[in-house]
């Protein structure tokens, strides 16, 4: 066994494979507490319904909000919530980063021969996160049924692309906001503004935020590409801000740019990581 002369196979475990392995083991750990898991799943399911109830309450008073009808808004809610719920299931392990850094457990991430990002994303994975999927799936189904839309192949493709790009955009946001923990370990709550805040804002037609903020949410923090821009095309709605037509199809580009930024930021953070304590 004194075979230290044999060089180990140098290819590190592929990130996604490592991620799935870790997800499986964390799920096994979470299922040790069954009752709690069940109740928290129910709580998650219920929590995601709250915004939906709020939208229904609002539309009980008026017929349109920001120029959008109830089924249209529910379509926005459904797509953004679905993308967010999946990204939350996949990537919200990042939320534990501040604690990991504070307790020094991030050191342990860095001594393993797999991608640090894969380890952090999978951290404390729990099946309860799937509880967030139910409400958006059902709502989206209902909204699509209620919308007076003439579906074409192009619209269907954009609709599916909306959720996929939205999911990638949210994952990139999780990683970018995770980087806040490296810079200021106790400022973690600021991250919520960008993750949960973006999700909350995009449940509604972006037109309600007015032109300056609407443009900022398009070109600075590009959450308009999560659902708003592609959905304008699917719903056949003119852009209230009068932005050019090609932006309806720019979500993949926005997702790619934000993912690239997230990857760069993550790498910089690892390089400048200063381990705490002794």
């Amino acid at each position: 066994m004194a075979d230290t002369t044999t060089e180990p196979d140098d290819r590190p475990l592929w990130g996604p494979t490592a991620y799935l392995l870790l997800v499986r083991i964390w799920m096994r750990a979470a299922s040790q507490y069954r009752v709690s898991l069940l109740l928290t799943t129910v709580a998650q399911l219920f929590t995601t319904c709250l915004d939906l109830i709020a939208i229904l309450v609002i539309y009980s008073h008026v017929r349109t909000i920001g120029g959008f009808t109830l089924p249209e808004t529910l379509y926005l809610y459904g797509t953004t919530r679905l993308a967010f719920a999946v990204s939350d299931a996949l990537a919200s392990g990042v939320e534990n980063l501040a604690t990991m850094i504070r307790l020094g457990n991030f050191d342990l991430v860095l001594i393993r021969p797999v991608s640090s990002l894969a380890q952090v994303l999978a951290d404390q994975f729990t099946p309860k996160r799937f509880g967030k999927l139910a409400a958006p799936v059902l709502t989206l189904g209902w909204a699509i049924d209620a919308l007076p839309l003439h579906w074409t192949a192009a619209k269907a493709a954009v609709a599916i692309g909306t959720v996929v790009c939205g999911l990638v955009l949210y994952c990139a946001l999780w990683v970018l906001t995770g980087c806040i923990s490296f810079i200021a370990v106790d400022a973690q709550e600021v991250a919520n503004s960008f993750t949960y805040g973006s999700e909350n804002a995009t449940e509604y037609p972006l037109s309600i935020f007015g032109r300056p903020l609407g443009l900022a949410l398009t070109f600075v923090l590009p959450v308009a590409f999560v659902t708003w821009q592609p959905s304008l095309y699917v719903l056949g709605h003119p852009d209230p801000f009068g932005l050019p037509e090609f932006l309806r199809f720019a979500s993949p580009a926005a997702a790619a740019v934000l993912s690239g930024l997230a990857a760069l930021a993550w790498r910089a953070c690892i390089r400048h990581y200063r381990s705490t304590g002794s």
Partner: peptide, 22 residues
């Protein structure tokens, strides 16, 4: 930590305010 929290509260205050204003 409290400052970070206050920032987030403010952001959400704005989001809710825009929705109610609409």
């Amino acid at each position: 930590s409290a400052a970070a929290g206050a920032f987030t509260n403010t952001v959400f205050g704005c989001i809710r305010a825009f929705v109610l204003m609409a």
